[in-house]
């Protein structure tokens, strides 16, 4: 019995992708929904992110970060993320359906 249990566990681990990077982005992305909506489809004037072009999202976040796109709050928030994290976030939201 115990042997079966252990085998089942190893199989389960093997099919769960081990990339820590992917998991991190999913946590980072989950913090955006506090404003952009639980499904990232926008809320009361705050734009939706769901399904926007990956390159568009990444460019906007970089423009907020660098100051070339004026904003009320995204400029302050975007400065908290590295370019790799921005790339990961852009991919995440572009893939949401």
């Amino acid at each position: 019995m115990k042997i079966h249990i252990i085998v089942a566990g190893i199989v389960a681990l093997a099919v769960a992708p081990a990339s820590a990077q992917t998991a991190d982005v999913s946590i980072l992305a989950s913090t955006c929904s506090g404003c952009h909506g639980a499904n990232a489809d926008g809320s009361g004037g705050i734009p939706g992110l769901k399904g926007q072009q990956q390159a568009y999202i990444a460019d906007q976040l970089k423009a907020f970060k660098g100051g070339s796109r004026p904003a009320t709050v995204m400029n302050r928030l975007a400065k908290g993320y590295t370019d790799e994290e921005i790339a990961g976030l852009a991919l995440h939201f572009s893939r949401l359906k």
């Binding site: 929904s33 506090g34 404003c35 952009h36 909506g37 639980a38 926008g42 809320s43 009361g44 004037g45 705050i46 009320t72 709050v73």
Partner: peptide, 19 residues
């Protein structure tokens, strides 16, 4: 911008309670 922040505040409230 102050007005926009009042609109976005309402958007925030709807988002977080919706979640």
């Amino acid at each position: 911008n102050r007005r926009l922040e009042s609109v976005y505040a309402d958007g925030w409230y709807a988002s977080i309670t919706g979640e």
